[in-house]
């Protein structure tokens, strides 16, 4: 407990600003958003994934994370969310290393697609204008996004995720203090 790191400097306004970044990222898939005032969570949590967790997770959202005891203590203290042992039980899944398969996460039902999980995926870096071709709602023509450190076979997994629309997992990619999102409605083509 002695080494517990602080959360948001201003819990109200910093969460608001982080949420707008996430909302903008989700509305314009593949566009990179930089968080204005992210917290400095314990490694291996990145500032961006820490900000996303503190913005969205609370006592009503079971969380699975693979980032070790320091991060668990930090999240439990600042967000107060229950931690679960199985990714399939979680509403938010945070992965810093190899993420669980998308097919193993909650996908919602056709009647209640909003009950699906959101995967917060830490990657090495995000770069616009190269890499994947993204199309779908939120994208006028095509957005390009290069994700360094994306899990092997992710694009194929994503295609399987997209065909079960409106069911499916949404992904928030985090690198350093930047985020980009992949709502289930988006299609990815490798470029």
């Amino acid at each position: 407990m002695s080494g517990l790191l602080p959360g948001f400097t201003d819990p109200v306004l910093d969460a608001q600003s982080a949420f707008r970044a996430v909302l903008e990222a989700m509305s314009r898939p593949g566009r990179i958003q930089r968080l204005q005032r992210p917290p400095a969570p314990p490694a291996p949590l990145s500032p961006a994934s820490g900000a996303v967790l503190l913005t969205l997770a609370d006592s009503g959202t079971p969380l699975f994370l693979d980032t070790g005891p320091d991060a668990e203590e930090w999240v439990r203290f600042h967000a107060g969310c229950p931690l679960v042992a199985e990714p399939a039980e979680a509403e938010f899944v945070l992965a810093s290393a190899l993420p669980p398969k998308l097919a193993a996460l909650r996908a919602g039902t056709d009647e209640d697609p909003q009950t699906s999980a959101t995967l917060i995926l830490q990657v090495e870096s995000l770069e616009e204008g190269a890499g994947w071709h993204l199309t779908g709602p939120g994208i006028e023509h095509a957005h390009r996004l290069r994700v360094a450190g994306a899990p092997q076979g992710f694009v194929a997994e994503w295609a399987a995720n997209a065909v079960r629309f409106p069911r499916g997992v949404d992904v928030i990619l985090c690198a350093g203090d930047t985020i980009a999102a992949l709502p289930r409605s988006v299609s990815i083509r490798e470029g």
Binding site: A15, L23, M26, L56, D58, T61, P113, G138, D170
Partner: peptide, 30 residues
């Protein structure tokens, strides 16, 4: 009062619903 009237727990609940609403365009989220 909190900034923008609503308490933070309510805002988080609405924010989570908004993100799912954007991810499934046109679908009504409770």
């Amino acid at each position: 009062y909190n900034f923008a009237y609503l308490d933070e727990g309510t805002k988080r609940m609405i924010r989570r619903a908004l993100l799912k609403a954007v991810a499934v365009p046109g679908c009504q989220i409770p």
